[in-house]
Every structure is written in C-alpha cells, then in structure tokens.
C-alpha cells in the first residue's frame, strides 16, 4: 500500500496563471473520515462540534456536517493519529471517505462571486462565516462546503462525490474564469 498513490479524480492537465485572483486546488489526496454517532455516545465529546460549524483540532479539521454527523479532514497521518484514540463504543459509524469524495479548495478574495455563479446559497460573512459548514448544490451537484479561510483570505473546501470530481473541477474553473482563476 505504501507505494501506491491515491489517484486524483481530476485527470486533465491545466496551465497555471501567475496573476489569478482565485486559486483552485485539488486536495483529494487528503484523508477524510465520516463519523455518525448516536445520542450519548462518548465519541460526541471528542468530536464536540455543532452542526454547521468546524474547527481545527491539532492538524485535523473537524466539521459538523449534518445532525449527528461529522467529517474529520487532514493529512493521512494526522487523521490516523487523531482517530486512533477516539472512543467508538455505542451506536457509532465510521466510514473512510478518503476514496469516496473529491476535495477541492477555492481560495481568493473574489471567490464569493465565483460561487454565486454556480450555487444559490448566501455566501455573505453573516450567513456563511469562516468555519461555517453546509451542503448545497454546486453546478447541480450536491456538495459539502466548509468555509476555511487561509490567512484571512476567503477559502472554501468543497467535497463532492468522487465520480463528479472532474466535472465539478471544470465547472469551478469556468465559474472563476470571469474573476481570474488558476489551478494551484
């Protein structure tokens, strides 16, 4: 296993631009765990993140993606380390979504404008602040979306069913073209 690389769903090649205001990055190679936990299970205390919000816990990002559902994202080693010690007693489901989701990051000041072209959600700071977690249709594909700003610059993690990865990557590039976008 160690010598195998997770294949990206984005198989086309793209030229990069140096002066683009938005950067689209493929972060599919990161690890993703999906936790679901019933009321009263000990793992809920470890996750400790309310639905609709996220936080960094060490090197992993914990997102309350739906009621009773959490995503834990990060580099493979970090996710493995975090999950090694979490209690899984009780009615708990842990599914490795590393292979089930493509993960893209859209970063840049005008990124809200790009998202407004493909998604009907309200991206204002009040309605979708840094750390917000939601799901919605982007370019007619259901996605999980986490606002995860980078050094104060608006940034969104977008997770989509892996099979839609190439399609969505191209749709996001198209949406960002008006504002200047490059593949990171």
């Amino acid at each position: 296993m160690s010598d195998l690389t997770i294949q990206s769903p984005v198989t086309r090649s793209y030229s990069t631009k140096t002066d683009a205001a938005i950067t689209l990055t493929d972060e599919t190679a990161q690890s993703r765990l999906l936790f679901r936990a019933g009321t009263g299970t000990p793992i809920r205390a470890a996750l400790a993140q309310s639905f609709g919000s996220s936080r960094m816990s060490g090197d992993v990002l914990i997102a309350g993606s739906r009621p009773d559902e959490w995503l834990v994202l990060g580099e493979a080693d970090a996710v493995a380390a975090w999950s090694a010690d979490v209690p899984t007693e009780g009615h708990v489901s842990l599914v490795d979504w590393t292979h089930g989701r493509a993960q893209f990051r859209l970063t840049g000041e005008p990124v809200r404008g790009a998202l407004e072209k493909v998604c009907g959600l309200d991206w204002s700071n009040a309605m979708t602040p840094d750390g917000a977690v939601t799901s919605g249709s982007i370019a007619k594909v259901t996605c999980d979306i986490i606002r995860n700003d980078v050094d104060g610059v608006p940034s969104y993690l977008i997770l989509v069913d892996r099979s839609f990865g190439q399609y969505l990557f191209d749709a996001l590039l198209d949406a960002g073209d008006e504002f200047g976008i490059t593949v990171g």
Binding site: Q7, P9, T11, K117, V118, A139, K140, V141, D161, R162, S163, F164, Q166, Y167, L168, A171
Partner: peptide
C-alpha cells in the same frame, strides 16, 4: 441560463 450537465465517471474512465 447557464446549462449544467453533470457527468460522472469511475476512476477507470481514463
């Protein structure tokens, strides 16, 4: 408007 036609492919598609 802008027409979106989502397509899905498997990892073996290439």
């Amino acid at each position: 408007g802008r027409i979106f036609e989502p397509e899905r492919v498997s990892s073996i598609h290439p």
